[in-house]
C-alpha cells in the first residue's frame, strides 16, 4: 500500500513523521509528567511543551528529570537528558515517579507489533526460544505500560505491525479488552492512543478495542484498513487537523533543528 511522503503545499507541507510528532504532542496537557523515550516521542514532547503544555515535565527512565533538551538526546542515557535537569535520579527512583498515584504520568512508547487492545511486542518475531528476529527487549516499556497513568504508542502503520496476535506480549495494554486490565491487577493506566504515519487510533470506552479516530489529510479509511492486520472500526473517523504553520516552525526550528530525528 503506497503512503504519502509529503502532504499539502509550502509553507504548510509536512511529512508523516512531522504529523506524527505534532498529533502525539497534542495529547499532552499542562502539568502532565511525560515519560519520553527517544525518537519521535521526544519531538512530540518538545512540541507539546512549546505549544500548549509549557508546564509539562519531560523525564527519562534513566532518571533525568525536566532537562532543557537544547540538544536532542539520541538514547535515554545520553548526557543531554541531564542538561539543566532538576534532579538526576537512578532507575528505581525514576520508576517511583512513573507509578506515583499523585502524578499523571503519560508514557510514549514504540513497538514492533501491536494488537487490537494496544498490547505491545518489542521482544521478538517467531517463537521466543528460537526467534526469527530478535529486538532490543522491553527496556522500560513494560514498566511504563504497567505503572503509568496512560501511554501513547508510535507505530509505523503496516499489516506486519498491526497484528491479530502478538508473537510476544512485552507491554500490557488493555490485555483482552473490557475490564481485563483491572482484573489482572493494574490499578490504572492503559493505552490512550496509537499515533501512526497514517492516522490516530483510539480505544473504545467499553470494549477497549482499537478504532480509527483521525486520519491525516490525504489518507483514506481504506488506506488505514489495508495497512491494519485486524478488523478495524472506521465509523467514528474524522480528518485530523493538519499541522499549523506555527507548529511546524516550532518542530523544525526549535525542537529538531539538526533534523536528527526528523531526517
Amino acid at each position: 500500500m503506497s503512503k504519502p511522503t509529503t502532504t499539502g503545499s509550502a509553507p504548510t507541507a509536512f511529512t508523516p513523521r512531522e504529523m506524527m510528532a505534532i498529533a502525539a504532542g497534542r495529547f499532552i496537557a499542562d502539568g502532565d509528567i511525560v515519560f519520553a523515550g527517544t525518537g519521535v516521542a521526544l519531538l512530540a514532547a518538545g512540541c507539546a511543551k512549546r505549544v500548549q503544555a509549557p508546564g509539562a515535565v519531560i523525564f527519562f527512565e534513566t532518571g533525568g528529570i525536566d532537562p532543557t533538551l537544547d540538544e536532542i538526546p539520541l538514547a535515554v542515557a545520553d548526557s543531554r537528558v541531564m542538561d539543566g535537569a532538576c534532579i538526576n535520579a537512578g532507575i528505581i527512583e525514576a520508576f517511583s515517579y512513573v507509578s506515583n498515584p499523585r502524578l499523571h504520568t503519560i508514557a510514549f512508547l514504540g513497538a514492533a507489533q501491536i494488537d487490537r487492545y494496544g498490547n505491545l511486542n518489542s521482544t521478538c518475531i517467531g517463537d521466543y526460544h528460537h526467534p526469527t528476529v530478535r529486538f532490543s527487549g522491553s527496556g522500560g516499556a513494560c514498566d511504563a505500560g504497567s505503572l503509568a497513568a496512560g501511554f501513547i504508542v508510535f507505530m509505523e502503520h503496516s499489516p506486519r505491525k498491526f497484528v491479530e496476535k502478538l508473537d510476544y506480549l512485552t507491554t500490557p495494554g488493555w490485555l483482552e479488552g473490557g475490564e481485563s486490565r483491572r482484573a489482572a491487577g493494574f490499578a490504572r493506566g492503559g493505552p490512550i492512543a496509537v499515533v501512526t504515519d497514517l492516522c490516530v487510533l483510539r480505544f473504545d470506552e467499553t470494549t477497549k478495542e482499537m478504532y480509527l479516530a483521525e486520519r491525516y489529510p490525504g489518507v483514506s479509511d481504506d488506506d488505514v484498513v489495508a495497512n491494519t492486520g485486524f478488523a478495524l472500526d472506521v465509523s467514528r473517523a474524522v480528518e485530523a487537523l493538519p499541522p499549523t504553520a506555527e507548529e511546524l516552525r516550532i518542530l523544525r526550528d526549535e525542537v529538531d533543528p539538526q533534523r536528527l530525528i526528523l531526517g
Binding site: 521482544t123 504497567s146 500490557p172 489482572a184
Partner: peptide
Amino acid sequence: TKSGLHTDL
C-alpha cells in the same frame, strides 16, 4: 512489583 503482570515477561 506490579510491573509485568499478564505479560510474556
